[in-house]
Simulated scan of single mutants.
Amino acid sequence: MTRARAPREAAAPVRSGGTSRRVTARTTALAYAFMLPFLVLLAVYHTWPVLFGTYLAFTEYNVISPPRFVGLANFQRLLHDDQFWSGVVNSLKYLMVVPVLQLASIGLAMLVNRPLPGIGFFRTAYYVPVVTSFAVVGLIWTWMYQQDGPVTFVLQHLGLMKEPHSLLNDPGKALYAVMFVTLWKGIGYYMVLYLAGLQGVPKDQEEAAEMDGATRLQVFWHVTLPALRPTVLVCSLLSTISAIKVFEEVYVMTSGGPVGSTYTALFFTYAKAFQDFQYGYAAAAGLVIAVISLIFGAINFRLTRGGRSDA
């Protein structure tokens, strides 16, 4: 009795080193071909403006005549420009929005993360201000802050305002009124980011902590928050840079007034470039703002331990 032979497995084709390298090169070339449109747009609209703007920071340029190299003269001038440093101070004051915005967004994200009836409607409602043009938002809140607006009416009836007046015309309150609009408009955006982060928090760890007798606050502090640290880093970075570079709110609502109380660093750059046509000086101011943003970005990395959830 003969024994049937088992069918042989098909041998995998053996590629030579030259063939393998050609396949790898072809795959790499195909990948870069797909990325080429984006890389071109990135170079034209991001890399080139950054490089050219850095060059302009060391020149005197007014569009009419060619750039004239002046070295560090623009930066020396900035050191003695009280208006610029007043704008920097206002931009740094604007950083007060960041912790309030992050805490409110986390709390709101935890609230809408629950399976409550109609929760989808509330998620959408909180996000509507994010997709609304700031020109529209600014006009609405400018009307609400007017002397006969609803905000003034509420504050007066709560005893927080003696005489009715527009908050945007009060040098001591205008900046904080604009900050509140930034908070109101941005909370939905960061809520969505934190909501996505909460979806990745291990539920079994939270349940185990609760079974061990941990309170909700302890579970949040020792389990939920460490797992959210990468999201906290991203959100704090975005909100910090946005606060330092605040412009739209000021431009639409106050134009830097009253009496320069809302005049920010980026508004100073805009005014020097597009009102005074001092593009080299404006580029130098923009470079200083970029350095300040990098410093606060490094501080965010330090405080969040680089976004490592196991740190």
Rank of each mutant, 00 (worst) to 15 (best):
Q146R: 15
D170Y: 00
G71N: 02
V70W: 08
N62E: 15
G118F: 05
G138W: 00
G260P: 02
T269D: 01
M253H: 04
F38C: 06
I244C: 05
K162C: 07
L228N: 03
K203L: 15
L233G: 03
N300D: 15
D204L: 07
Y32L: 12
V151M: 06
Y55N: 00
N169L: 12
P150S: 14
L228K: 04
A104K: 05
L233C: 08
M144S: 07
T28C: 06
G172E: 07
I295E: 13
I299Q: 13
P117V: 05
P258H: 00
L95M: 07
M161C: 07
D81L: 09
V288I: 14
Y32V: 05
Y32F: 14
V250R: 00
S255K: 09
G118W: 06
L198M: 11
L41I: 06
L175P: 00
G172L: 04
Q199R: 10
M191C: 14
A243C: 09
Y270C: 02
S309C: 01
L108R: 04
V252Q: 11
G53Q: 08
Q156T: 12
T124V: 13
P258C: 01
G260V: 01
M35G: 08
R68F: 11
Q199W: 11
L103A: 15
R229C: 01
S236D: 02
A311M: 02
F58R: 01
R229N: 03
Y279F: 14
F296R: 08
V89G: 14
A57N: 01
P230A: 11
G306H: 08
F84V: 09
Y270Q: 06
Y176R: 04
D212M: 14
V97C: 12
T231Q: 09
S16R: 09
V291K: 12
P117T: 04
L51T: 04
K93I: 11
R68H: 15
R26G: 02
L42T: 09
P150N: 12
G172P: 02
R68W: 11
F301T: 06
V40T: 09
H222P: 01
G257C: 04
Y189P: 01
T142E: 11
T152V: 10
D276Q: 15
V181I: 08
R5K: 12
G260D: 10
F121W: 14
P202E: 15
R22Q: 05
V250F: 00
L41D: 03
S65Y: 10
I106Y: 00
